[in-house]
Design a protein around this nucleic acid. Sequence first.
DNA 1: CTATATTTTTAGATTAATCTAAAAATATTA
DNA 2: TAATATTTTTAGATTAATCTAAAAATATAG
Lengths: 217, 217
Amino acid sequence: MNSFTEENYLKAIYKFSLTHKKGASTNSIAKALNTKASSVTDMLKKLALKNLINYKKYYGVTLTSKGKQIALSIIRNHRLWEVFLVDKLNFNWDEVHELAEELEHIKSEKLITNLDAFLNFPTLDPHGDPIPTKNGKIKNIKMIDLSQFKINQEGVFIHVKDSSDKFLKYLSKNNLEIGVKIKVIEMESFDNSFKIAYNNQQLIISENVAKNLYIKN
Amino acid sequence: MNSFTEENYLKAIYKFSLTHKKGASTNSIAKALNTKASSVTDMLKKLALKNLINYKKYYGVTLTSKGKQIALSIIRNHRLWEVFLVDKLNFNWDEVHELAEELEHIKSEKLITNLDAFLNFPTLDPHGDPIPTKNGKIKNIKMIDLSQFKINQEGVFIHVKDSSDKFLKYLSKNNLEIGVKIKVIEMESFDNSFKIAYNNQQLIISENVAKNLYIKN
DNA sequence: CTATATTTTTAGATTAATCTAAAAATATTA
DNA sequence: TAATATTTTTAGATTAATCTAAAAATATAG
Ligand SMILES: [Mn+2]
Ligand SMILES: [Mn+2]
Ligand SMILES: [Mn+2]
Ligand SMILES: [Mn+2]
């Protein structure tokens, strides 16, 4: 069995692989896990020994298929628990991440299988992220971030990239929820800000915000 | 914050106090937690330093009120999770203990408050054990074990003492569930075994089994 | 009340995960 | 490509939880 710590390293390496071609660097992992590079090196040696990562000193690491499978199952747990907390226990979407970080490590096949059924086999978590299947299949949803939109273009908001509670609270405050139809009505080339319309309201958002809102493609 | 390990020690000391007048001995704790006496001594020093136990070298330990409060809150978590697993996720009562041992340590006030509400404020867990309130109040249910019954005496089975999965499976197999009305119809003074009747069946049980079945008083 | 048995504590190691500081390797840039 | 900057690894400590073996304290029995 792998420790919570090992599982968190695998998850971090997996997440890195989603946005980068090359393997994750020691420093990138250290940053993601809020630890020091030297600690990461130690752990990489250990994970390599367990055949969970491909590690060559001084070069980045990638997951082996065994490592990837573990990472995906932890992510599955995480997202199912987030659905549980929001749908059943009335949590807000900005309150669930830290708790799910703990719950995800509880290992019980039956627990997850039955939780999945209890939740009616959800495919997306509260932040629009796809939930991997039991066999580690994960749907690749086609989407682009709002900053790439042209004027008058519109689409459905389906995913939020930054899921820090600060950002999520900002979105909630402005009624920007998953499923809302958004239309770009103005663009400011000066600072790349956008004016958007949705429901019955309008809002000016910074480029940074736009880059974190993903729209169905 | 206290580690999982510390919390388990506090729980063990609390449980010991339920059946014994004197403080828990180093050895009794070691046995309960499946560890060595020397490890227990180390931990007792640490808990004493944190003012969670009353510890005097070579004599037993008792919980301080702070320690007791923590123990009760962990037990509350444990029992609420057991109710969740049985009532919502269709687990059997003999499958939940180990999982609850892990879930009980997840610290979130809101999680437990909302889980409690979601479960409709249960007062008993699947094994008939009372669930402490948020403020650490725990109902003392009046009950006696079946071995003290006389012939023809009857009562409702409300609590099982030994909650090992082996014993629980034995009870399930014989349809002995919490809430069943049991009547003693024969006693064998030779080995203190009992013949009992309940629902539409009869069963001969050993003294050991009788001592683990508690009946409402 | 002394000798023996039992229990508890201490001493000294070990393992996992972490850190700081220094050394080594790789990457950049002029 | 050589100097410099950056990244990564190593060396050596630290902290929590555990262990074995030995010493010390307490309990028990004749
Ligand atoms: Mn999350
Ligand atoms: Mn999420
Ligand atoms: Mn239990
Ligand atoms: Mn129980």
